[in-house]
Amino acid sequence: MSWGERLEKLDRRWIFLAVGFLVLIPLLFPFKLPIAVSGPARRYFEAVDKIPDGSTVVVSGDFDPASAPELMPMLTSSVRHLFRKNCKIIALQLWPGGPPLVDGVLHSLGDEMGKKYGVDYVNLGYKSGNEVVMLAFGTSFSRTFPNDYSGTPVKQLPLMQKNDNFETTKLLVNISAGYPGTKEWVQQAQGRFHITMVSGSTAVQAPELYPYLQSGQVLGLLGGMAGAAEYEKSTGVLGPATKGMDAQSSAHVFIMFLILLGNAIYFARRNAQGRA
């Protein structure tokens, strides 16, 4: 069997092993490659930075643990950025796996930055219903979520007494892994309630959201771990996304190599068959 044939029939587990090493080594021995902030990430940062200090912001964390490695750094950086501006946060989740993740970030950063639950931030938790919840939420926060994540009636929370719909909020930050997510917020809520929005999403979904970025319905967009790393650089607080970029770089280079190798073998065999 020629080398070409052997490579073509290569057991894919060798490829899995190579990918595993190429991801692990940069995590253990970082290269510290420089990160350039792209246009959409810069616009995300500017949109958050531009809102007046002390404004109320809605944060919708629509993801679950599967996409946490990409999206948790975005959420953490966004919440930190908002808390630094003394903004008030009203959080909700439309994925059942989301509440503990978002709650953890809010409480840990809240404690770190001296924020008080109920006054500076509230987590309303999860509600099923997808777009229906978005529409109902836009009309009245308290009617859609009568209690917060821990069961406290929202009318007892000072932050919720002053905010019951999008009229008093300045921004919607949507961290989204799929459906329901940014697209549904744009379709159901952005136009209807005239809300200003930014979005952080997984790398796979981000290209789908560029039309909304171009039309101005979404003011800024973070795509995948690369977007999260760019945002971390913009805020000046580097975190797990930045650490992951070296591993992502080496994985991308390896996949590029595999595509070129696969095609080189294909063309070589095709030429050989042509000659034969």
Binding site: L33, P34, G223, M245, Q248, H252, I255, M256
Partner: peptide, 10 residues
């Protein structure tokens, strides 16, 4: 693929 990660910039 290469442009979206730091190695592309580098």
């Amino acid at each position: 693929m290469i442009g979206r990660v730091p190695i592309g910039q580098w």
